[in-house]
């Protein structure tokens, strides 16, 4: 209500009123316009009618499956979706991401963690609608997707075709968590979705070539049990 007219809109689908209240409070403090829904059905209506810039939803909703709801929303909108989930529900997170969610946040979380995710997603949304990235810098590494060249401190870095494809895929979805399945599908093809060890080996290669400390990566991050994320 206090947000200006051109403020980004957020639809929050969460059944716990206390959690909903503090998320809404935080979002509004950051200048977002927030619409709250307590059930999956109401959430679908809000998502369809409010034309939100971002959806935050809990996976455990009383009247339905959160993953199914994501599928339905993806049927008509490419809006970024942030999923709130409990720990030890990695399988649910993976399912949600595979269904089209963009990121997840594990409960409990602080306001700064929440807002960091929200900012990244909003930025990505804006960028995607402008036509994606052509070049970017990761520390002292620069990648030019048009020229297909990678340099580190000015020196060219040799990447194999598969390594490059993997890097390019991560860059295209920068900031977003990509599940093992999504990466395998996009880089290696449908026949390889069960061969997650390929991914580990190639991710190791990429880190060796691009990260300052491969064991403590700054950009190519591991989301245990879920997938990988490129942080710019």
């Amino acid at each position: 209500m206090t947000a200006p007219h051109n403020a980004p809109t957020l639809v929050l689908i969460e059944d716990e009123p206390q959690i909903a209240r503090f998320v809404a409070m935080t979002a509004e403090a950051a200048g977002l316009q927030c619409w709250h829904a307590a059930t999956a059905r109401q959430g679908l209506v809000e998502a369809g009618t409010r034309q939100p810039d971002l959806i935050i939803m809990d996976l455990g909703l009383p009247d339905g499956d959160g993953v199914a709801l994501i599928g339905e929303i993806r049927g008509f909108s490419a809006v970024p979706i942030l999923v709130l989930s409990a720990r030890s529900q990695e399988a649910d997170k993976v399912n949600a991401l595979d269904a089209g969610a963009d990121d997840y946040l594990t409960k409990p979380f602080g306001t700064n963690e929440l807002m960091a995710r929200v900012r990244v997603l909003l930025r990505r949304h804006a960028r995607d609608s402008q036509g994606g990235i052509a070049a970017l810098a990761l520390g002292d590494v620069s990648v030019d997707l048009v020229a297909r060249s990678v340099t580190r401190a000015g020196q060219p870095v040799h990447l194999t075709p598969t390594e490059y494809r993997l890097l390019a895929t991560l860059i295209r979805h920068a900031g977003k968590v990509l599940t093992h399945r999504q990466l395998l599908l996009e880089v290696w093809g449908p026949a390889y979705v069960e061969h997650s060890h390929y991914l580990r080996i190639y991710m190791g290669h990429l880190r060796q070539k691009l990260e300052a400390d491969p064991a403590r990566p700054a950009h190519l991050l591991t989301e245990s049990g879920v997938g990988y994320r490129l942080v710019i």
Binding site: Q18, F22, V23, T26, K107, P108, F109, G110, T111
Partner: peptide
């Protein structure tokens, strides 16, 4: 988990 999430959220709101 629900109360812990709420607690952490509120406390961190206050911090910021």
């Amino acid at each position: 988990r629900t109360p812990i999430t709420v607690l952490l959220g509120l406390a961190s709101t206050l911090t910021e």
